[in-house]
Design a protein around this nucleic acid. Structure first.
Length: 424
DNA sequence: TCTGGGGTCCTAGGACCC
DNA sequence: TCTGGGGTCCTAGGACCC
């Protein structure tokens, strides 16, 4: 019995989540905007067929969307994360091994049955996701992750495949690979695609067959590995236990440019608070931290500054991180610069169980225990009653630079007060 | 007026060591 | 006059992903 790799993902995930919670949106064109209502990052099938393109800035598309009567939603990551968890636990129950690869996709390993036919299994799984979560999913099957990715694409793009495609059991795989243009191959970005095209390599099959040494010279071992994957050698193992993060960052664009030190300080404080929460959730501490800010890259006189510091003792305590980060704000601030964005990076992370008490740090075991309990309590309160229930003074009370989310939909799976109301 | 956020991996080159 | 060879570690930047 041979092993098969699957790539399973949700179609138009964010848009599908919105439709899943608000059935009035089913069958209608829906787009979801990035943070700050910046760009279009997801489109329902209906929106796609209207020719609406991914990544278009909202302000450019707005009139057109209104004219075509498209439903526009701000992104709601709490909702998508929750739907994602439900989808992943469903998948976990239906495969042998699962690697959660992103919010809306997962690689899986399973065995090919004796008759070689995996379509009945795939059809059942699709029906299950549709029935339990109201999410459309696509399933691609191959001998490696790279092949599974291509198969998944063919499952979606070719209507006759109805969301399922098995590269390992089709009669003429090369014919299908030729329909996938080089830009759409996983691992080939803009630069490499251009380079390939200049050499006459324009589709997935040609990439698989191009001279390896030529590819290595340009794209290094990463390129060679990708090519081997397309040839059916599984070089990229399934990653079942997600490795601990090496760094964590929180950054946001402002709803309007800011020019005061005070506002920049509030923004950085807000991001530090969020980053500290993330660290605690990941059971990690940070040993170094960077704050940065920049003006808009779309207007002249671009300005960007970063400042870093390291901590004597790794920490995930909000107060400690604020004390380390806030002095850096003065170093990156310059008056008369219309700042468009700021962020914080937590670097050199380590697991909480790695901590060694420094002899010279004036903090007793008992004191530290109390701090940890305090942080835990704050996290619980904020989780239970909503983010911001317990707030840090440094973040400002009513920041008007905070990101725009003017078109939020409902969030029935994560907020009690937004449960659907059924009229009988 | 208005253009997202959060990551990883790899390589080249500099600093430093013996 | 001449100016090794080999190794490690770190960082910045490129490329890519979703």
């Amino acid at each position: 019995m041979s092993q098969v790799t699957a790539l399973i993902d949700a179609n138009n995930f964010y848009a599908s989540c919105e439709q899943s919670l608000d059935p009035a949106l089913i069958g209608r064109p829906v787009v979801v905007l990035s943070n700050n209502d910046g760009c279009i990052v997801a489109r329902s099938a209906e929106a796609r067929s209207l020719g609406i393109t991914m990544g278009t800035p909202y302000f450019k598309a707005k009139r057109n969307l209104e004219r075509q009567n498209v439903v526009v939603r701000s992104s709601n990551y709490a909702l998508y994360a929750d739907m994602s968890q439900r989808l992943m636990s469903l998948l976990e129950s239906q495969v042998e091994d699962l690697e959660i690869y992103s919010i809306d996709e997962a690689f899986a390993r399973l065995s090919r049955p004796s008759d070689g036919n995996l379509y009945p299994w795939a059809r059942r799984l699709r029906a299950l996701a549709r029935r339990n979560l109201s999410l459309p999913i696509a399933i691609g099957l191959g001998l490696s992750k790279g092949q599974a990715k291509l198969a998944n694409r063919l499952a979606k793009v070719v209507p006759a495949h109805a969301g399922l495609f098995d590269l390992g059991s089709c009669t003429d795989p090369d014919r299908w690979l030729e329909t996938i243009s080089i830009e759409d191959v996983w691992g080939i970005g803009r630069k490499l695609a251009l380079w390939c095209r200049m050499r006459g390599v324009v589709n997935a099959r040609e990439l698989r067959e191009m001279p390896t040494e030529c590819l290595r010279a340009k794209a290094g071992v990463v390129g060679v590995r990708l090519q081997r994957e397309l040839q059916g050698h599984a070089c990229l193992p399934l990653d079942l236990e997600p490795s601990p993060k090496q760094e964590t960052c929180v950054s946001r664009s402002f709803s309007r440019p800011i020019t005061s030190l005070e506002e920049l300080r509030e923004a950085v404080a807000t991001y530090v608070v969020r980053a500290a929460e993330k660290l605690r959730k990941q059971h990690q501490r940070t040993a170094a931290l960077t704050v940065y800010t920049r003006t808009s890259p779309f207007i002249p006189a671009f300005y960007s500054r970063a400042a870093s510091t390291s901590l004597d003792l790794p920490s995930n305590d909000t107060r400690v991180l604020l004390e380390a980060a806030l002095p850096l704000v003065e170093r990156i601030f310059q008056p008369h610069r219309p700042l468009a964005k700021a962020g914080v990076l937590m670097q050199h992370l380590q697991g909480v169980n790695q901590l060694q008490q420094h002899l010279w740090v004036p903090c007793t075991q008992e004191e530290q225990q109390k701090r940890e309990t305090l942080m835990d309590t704050i996290d619980r309160l904020n989780h239970r009653y909503g983010r911001g229930t317990v707030q840090w003074a440094a973040c400002g009370l009513h920041p008007n630079w905070a990101m725009r989310r003017e078109r939020l939909g409902r969030a029935s799976t994560t907020r009690l007060d937004e449960l659907p109301i059924v009229h009988c």
